[in-house]
Design a protein around this nucleic acid. Structure first.
Lengths: 143, 143
DNA sequence: TAATATTGCACAGCATGCTATGCAAGTGGT
DNA sequence: ACCACTTGCATAGCATGCTGTGCAATATTA
């Protein structure tokens, strides 16, 4: 029995994800941020001064992955970390001016990548595609 | 203006890809193979003794990534590499018995992951989803 | 209050992917 | 035959993700 990778959902999903990441990377890397930092920045642009734990609840990566990415962001001057005065275990994560300034540009870049990638689908197909992904993710997270 | 990651195709694609990889990893890792080796094994199960270049044409990763993964596969006793007698630059890549024996199990694992992940969609939706992904990948590769 | 459990975070080690670079082996043109 | 180009592969260095583990600070329970 054969196994055609072109008919394997997992294979296509993986390939598609790498293409998305590569595309976004090319647009934002020249501005000093990289794709893994994106979800974190999205949260911090909405509200910073939060704990690592609070970020973790909103971002679907493991705690160790988040800690590593935050290290690189601190190294690159995107965030600062302070101790929470009422809980010495916890930290508060703050955006630097540099990171704050990148917000609109980053939003626009992501939206352009999304729009271009989905441009091969019409509006109704795009909506279905997004809905299918949401359902698949919910189903897989539950299991 | 806000940017909702739940409405970002790139974010969902990335998340979905990690869930797929994690799921497949859990099933195949106990048998001594890992997800990155999967596409390579798929090709070699069809035909081995081929060159790295010939694998590269069929698998959508960079040449350096392939070379690294092949190194790990050789280390783990999944493949052997011999020199091509008529071209000293090229190599021939052969599966070991260990790798050959894993074939049906690996096929079944991948198919089960795919089926379970897509089980939240009905047959028609699944077909559309796969088609959308193919079109998106084609479009992004072209650009 | 003392012992125990939980929480918040860090670090080590690894796989997978990328870009950039180098190099030896073949190919082609002169 | 020689020089330049191309081809096939390897390596370095990095980012992103994972699991496993450890630890100090808080919370809970006996």
């Amino acid at each position: 029995m054969e196994f055609e990778k072109e008919n394997s959902a997992g294979y296509l999903v993986n390939h598609m994800a790498r293409l998305f990441a590569k595309e976004l990377q090319q647009r934002i890397a020249p501005h000093g941020i990289v794709v893994g930092q994106f979800p974190i920045l999205l949260e911090l642009w909405q509200k910073d001064g939060v704990s690592q734990k609070s970020l973790l609840d909103k971002i679907d990566v493991e705690q160790a992955t988040l800690a590593n990415t935050l290290n690189r962001m601190e190294r690159d001057g995107l965030i600062r970390r302070t101790r929470n005065p009422t809980d010495a275990r916890a930290q508060q994560i703050w955006l630097t001016n540099k990171a704050t300034a990148l917000r609109e540009y980053a939003y626009a870049s992501a939206q352009r990548v999304n729009a271009e990638a989905l441009s091969v689908l019409d509006a109704s197909e795009q909506a279905h595609f997004m809905e299918y992904m949401s359902r698949i993710i919910s189903g897989m997270r539950a299991s």
